[in-house]
Amino acid sequence: MEAVISQALAEGRNLTEPEALELLKAYGFPIVEHRFASSGEEAVEAASAIGYPVVLKIVSRDILHKSDAGGVALNLCGPDDIKAAFRQVIESVKKHKGDAAINGVLVARMAPPGTEVILGMVRDPQFGPTIMFGLGGVFVEVYKDVSFRILPLTEEDALEMVQEIKGFPLLKGIRGQGPKDIGSIVNGIMRLSRLVQENPRILEIDLNPIVVYEKGCEVLDARIILM
């Protein structure tokens, strides 16, 4: 995986999403099933291999925030949907940023609903690489309900950072929902910390969202920024 990072750095860009997902997979993260497609036809092929419904996401070195650029289409249920979405995604991205280099799209299985969490890494100027955990969506954006730990961290630290967020009861299970797989989040935190320690040229990581189920979890989206 070192080679992928070196190549991206040589090309003066960050990791593309397929590269980021590969890197995460190499560290044992459960990743949503996905394929790369460079045309509408390829996207249809990919979707039938994965199984419907699927999502399409733009793959471009120039687009960091895919949704803001109109580069994401959700819940696509058949070949016609996909072909139309492919055209539309490419068009919106070009409109958003005329000179964006577009590689194609990522076709990913539409994940079943679960509890969305985020996991990330930022570098603190004083304490170095810092892992962040929080509940996804409104919880992180509005309530800033997140916890941090400095590297290196222990499994106990990882569990504490999950337990200390205010929204923790949502993971323990409320209103008849079963408890979510907290062990899988702790494993994710430990994997992320190993990845960060072994890849010092990564500046920032944003895994948002990771969907957590009663058994297991799955990374749906990854952004890895290099130094």
Binding site: Q126, F127, S147, F148
Partner: peptide, 15 residues
């Protein structure tokens, strides 16, 4: 002093 982000200090202290 670089006072830093309070939530990071909080994490350091807990850890």
């Amino acid at each position: 002093s670089l006072a830093g982000r309070d939530e990071i200090y909080e994490a350091v202290f807990r850890q």
